[in-house]
């Protein structure tokens, strides 16, 4: 019974904290060009929000919200966004990752094109980093058996 009472504080606080962490991670990602931040940092904070759920409650809580297969697909989606943005530049006869030349195709000027290209790249990085960090945590905690393993920790 004391175990339940001990956990009430942790569970309540983390339940309140997780949405703020996720919004903060998006903030860090979006302001990466002007203050410390960017894709990797935002992805880590987003992953940390899920890991907080897993540490405070049960590993099942992560699994209820985010299945492992979807996690793997998010990882691939991030890399796809990154390389896709890089290869988009081929269409406007620029080099790889030269999204400044996209201003030839789209109705924006070169500086804005570079700006949005950078934001897209960082988005790809964030998604991949979040997915990989979460999957590292789940794999290590379940000793490789995946999230469907019999749960023996509380």
């Amino acid at each position: 019974m004391t175990k339940d009472l001990d956990n009430v504080v942790i569970k309540t606080v983390s339940r309140i904290l997780v949405p703020f962490m996720q919004v903060f991670s998006l903030y860090v990602f979006a302001h990466g060009h002007g203050s410390p931040g960017g894709g990797f940092q935002g992805g880590c904070i987003m992953a940390a929000s899920f890991i907080l759920l897993g540490v405070a409650f049960n590993l099942r809580e992560i699994g209820k919200r985010f299945r492992e297969r979807n996690n793997a697909l998010m990882c691939v989606l991030g890399v796809f966004i990154y390389t896709g943005t890089g290869c988009l530049a081929f269409l406007s006869s620029g080099n790889f990752l030269d999204y400044g030349t996209l201003s030839d195709l789209l109705p924006i000027d070169s500086i804005k094109a570079r700006y949005y290209g950078m934001a897209l790249i960082e988005l790809g990085v964030q998604i991949t980093v979040m997915a990989v960090m979460l999957s590292i945590f789940v794999d290590l905690v379940t000793a490789g058996r995946g999230e469907d393993a019999p749960e023996d920790t509380e």
């Binding site: 960017g38 980093v129 990989v132 960090m133 590292i136 290590l140 000793a143």
Partner: peptide, 24 residues
Amino acid sequence: MLTAIVVGVATTGIALALLILIYR
């Protein structure tokens, strides 16, 4: 060093997974 930190994290991840295999 952002890149190097990511490399370090990946190294730690792989090493821990290998340690689990060794322990098993």
